[in-house]
Amino acid sequence: MEASSGRTHRRRLNRGGDRQANSALYTITIARLRRDQRTRNYVQRRINEGKTRREAIRCLKRYICRDLYRVITDARPPSPSPALPRAA
């Protein structure tokens, strides 16, 4: 689906989605922009490539999503706990 306006042309990948997850992702992004120098460098690099700050933040959100996906999918399942004795 097109999500274009004026001279900006892009495609929206998915119209649906989890609003709470998007909100959490935005919160993570803003917190990293305030605290993490690597994140600030990343956004500055995107701006130097000719992107607007808003576009750079969109790139950053995708970057963070990829990191989170790796963390979630690489997580090892917890080892089974020993059987607890039954109460009499």
Rank of each mutant, 00 (worst) to 15 (best):
E55H: 12
D74P: 06
D67H: 14
Q37I: 10
N22S: 04
T27Y: 00
S23N: 03
G17A: 08
I72K: 08
A88D: 04
S23D: 01
K61H: 00
Y69Q: 10
N48M: 06
I28E: 04
R45L: 01
E49L: 08
T52Y: 12
Y69G: 00
A24W: 15
Y26Q: 10
Y26R: 12
L68C: 07
L60A: 04
K51G: 00
L25N: 04
K61Y: 04
R66H: 13
R38L: 09
N48G: 05
A24Q: 12
Y42W: 11
N22Y: 11
R35L: 11
Q20F: 10
P77L: 10
L68N: 03
L68D: 02
P80N: 07
A88I: 07
R45P: 00
T52P: 02
S79P: 05
D36C: 09
L68Q: 15
R53G: 05
R40Q: 15
T39A: 05
L68S: 01
L60S: 02
I28S: 06
V43I: 08
Y26C: 08
Y69D: 04
A31V: 01
C65T: 13
T73M: 03
Q37M: 05
P78R: 13
D18P: 01
P80D: 04
N22I: 01
N48F: 01
I72C: 12
P85T: 06
T39P: 07
I57W: 03
E55F: 09
G17N: 11
I64E: 03
C65F: 06
K61R: 14
A88L: 09
A21H: 04
R62Y: 04
I64S: 05
S81V: 08
R53D: 03
R38T: 12
V43Y: 00
P82E: 15
R35C: 08
Y63E: 15
R40G: 14
V71I: 15
K51Q: 04
C65D: 03
C59G: 03
N41V: 07
R34T: 09
A87L: 07
A83D: 14
